[in-house]
């Protein structure tokens, strides 16, 4: 396996791990991934550029909320993760603002990482203030538009920052147990 393939493989493993873990909460389904269902995992920003998410599905609320997940399979605090997270925040705002021009799509954005980063600023990473700072780092996502404080708050309220470790799978209910309780919980609200 080449280095490029190994990196791609590691990313793919991380996506599958995140999917299984999130679905095991019984609140989420993530049927679509960017490798196979590119179209439904792609959103458009204010500047017309597209952003692809690793996973797409929904949170079982009434009505369900669209759920977009970006998975980072990093093994250390360094590397590009902090930089990419700024972009993630800016994209979330830009896409929410683009939706706001027509109808609020109630999209939720999750950053799932296998390694924490920016630990000193951890509690601020999903705040409106942080989103505003991200827009200053990536003004191109605004396409010249002014920042809307209400949309900053709305975007921040729809951000999820989750840290996952491989061993968490040892603490998950088994497939059989989950299938049993799904029938009782009926999170999906089947008739």
């Amino acid at each position: 396996m080449s280095v490029a393939e190994a990196i791609q493989q590691a990313g793919h493993d991380g996506v599958q791990l995140a999917k299984r873990w999130l679905e095991s909460t019984t609140w989420i389904e993530l049927p679509f991934d960017v490798y196979t269902n590119t179209a439904v995992c792609t959103l458009t920003r204010l500047d017309g550029k597209v952003k692809r998410y690793d996973l797409f599905g929904q949170i079982f609320r009434d009505p369900p909320d669209p759920f977009y997940v970006e998975v980072k399979n990093y093994t250390s605090a360094g590397g590009k993760q902090p930089e990419e997270y700024w972009e993630f925040l800016a994209n979330a705002y830009s896409i929410t603002a683009q939706d706001d021009k027509t109808e609020d799509a109630r999209r939720q954005f999750a950053w799932v990482t296998l390694h924490p980063f920016e630990q000193t600023a951890w509690s601020e990473l999903t705040t409106a203030k942080r989103v505003a700072k991200a827009l200053k780092k990536h003004p191109e996502v605004l396409a010249g538009e002014q920042v809307n404080p209400d949309l900053l708050s709305l975007t921040a309220s729809r951000l999820w920052l989750l840290v996952l470790h491989e061993r968490q799978t040892d603490l998950m209910l088994t497939s059989v147990e989950l299938a049993i309780i799904e029938g009782q919980l009926n999170r999906k609200g089947r008739k």
Binding site: H12, D13, T169, T174, S175, V176
Partner: peptide, 21 residues
């Protein structure tokens, strides 16, 4: 499944998790 690329760890886990069914 979109793929079960043999030998990949994540899918192996998936296969193992479902085996009892």
């Amino acid at each position: 499944r979109n793929r079960v690329a043999a030998g990949e760890r994540a899918e192996d886990e998936d296969v193992r998790a479902l085996a009892s069914r």
